[in-house]
Design a protein around this nucleic acid. Structure first.
Length: 116
DNA sequence: GTTATGACTAAAA
DNA sequence: TTTTTAGCCATAA
């Protein structure tokens, strides 16, 4: 298959969609999974455009520090935090507690990229 | 076509 | 230790 034919955004969405409930990941991990380790910013940019796609759980993607950087892009003031807490993720002051415990790495969990 | 920006990250001070 | 700088590359203007 030729992933190059797909836009970067679409690949990001496919990965984000596969994040299990109650788990979170960071932009760098997704970028690395797509083969662009140093282009984490593009992943975040893709998330910004993901608002049109309801299937993309953007709230499960946080920055490397576990900080909910995209919180202000959600409708509600603390909608992103509530969504995570609703899934069992402990969030405190816009930051995920025990991030290492909730962390989900596509490179570790998704050995194959046939899903796309 | 060139410039600016960003839901980031890693390295340097 | 914390703060700043630089790199990254796809959109937008």
């Amino acid at each position: 298959m030729k992933p190059e034919t797909l836009h970067f955004f679409d690949r990001v969405y496919e990965v984000v969609k596969q994040i299990p409930s109650g788990k979170v990941t960071n932009y760098g991990a997704i970028a690395r999974y797509l083969g662009a380790a140093k282009s984490a910013r593009i992943v975040g940019y893709a998330m910004n455009a993901s608002h049109n796609m309801d299937d993309v759980p953007a709230h499960r993607v946080v920055n490397r520090n576990g900080l909910l950087t995209g919180k202000f892009h959600f409708d509600g003031t603390n909608l992103m935090q509530q969504l995570l807490e609703n899934e069992g993720v402990e969030v405190k002051n816009n930051q995920v507690e025990n991030l290492k415990d909730y962390y989900w790495d596509p490179n570790e969990e998704l050995n194959l990229h046939d899903t796309i």
